[in-house]
Amino acid sequence: MTTRHRYPRLTDAEGPKQIPKAVFIEDVEDYIGPANPLEVHRNLNELLQKYRFMEEEFGKKQRALQEKLPEIKEAITVIKFLKDRRGHDEPLETHYQLADCIYAEASVPPTETVCLWLGANVMLEYPLDDALALLEQNLNTAAASLKDLGDDLDFLRDQRTTTEVNVARVHNHMVHIKAKVLAQAQTQAQSTRAEATDGANN
């Protein structure tokens, strides 16, 4: 431990996304140093809560993205399907969802364009090939950010586990200290009692 940090450091240099890295404790006694073990224990627990919270938040993000992927994939399937239909003459007979549990009939003539919902109340008409390219690009972006998020989550999990182990080790250390003090007190009491009986006998 460097003398610069009088109080035991909880985290090290920052990892990806400015997530602090949990320190690994080489030696618990050395780590705590002159600090109050109870306080160190409490601070480590606090850090653990933070990591848990972050892990949960990242997990939520991950689930949201995971739900988005199949939607994009479905849209791609539909466009591919429409592309295949370009040569046909007869219109495509479909039932589309009007509202929950209500479906209406529609016949779609062979088409060269499709409208994509871009969000923010904007819908834009694209030629089929362009729409496909756009959606595939979206899919790749989403997959890439999902992978990034997975890496961040793995990093967070490592920090959380390290901190959990640190909490357990500091706790165990405290138990050991208590036991040592207790044992010392007992031997002291025994020796004083022995002295006392010795004195009485003499």
């Binding site: 959380r160 586990t161 959990e164 357990a168 706790h171 165990n172 050991h176």
Partner: peptide
């Protein structure tokens, strides 16, 4: 056991 949330647990001595 100190970690109900995760799978791997380091035993905490003497707490109970």
């Amino acid at each position: 056991l100190c970690k109900p949330s995760s799978h791997c647990k380091i035993r905490i001595e003497g707490r109970n």
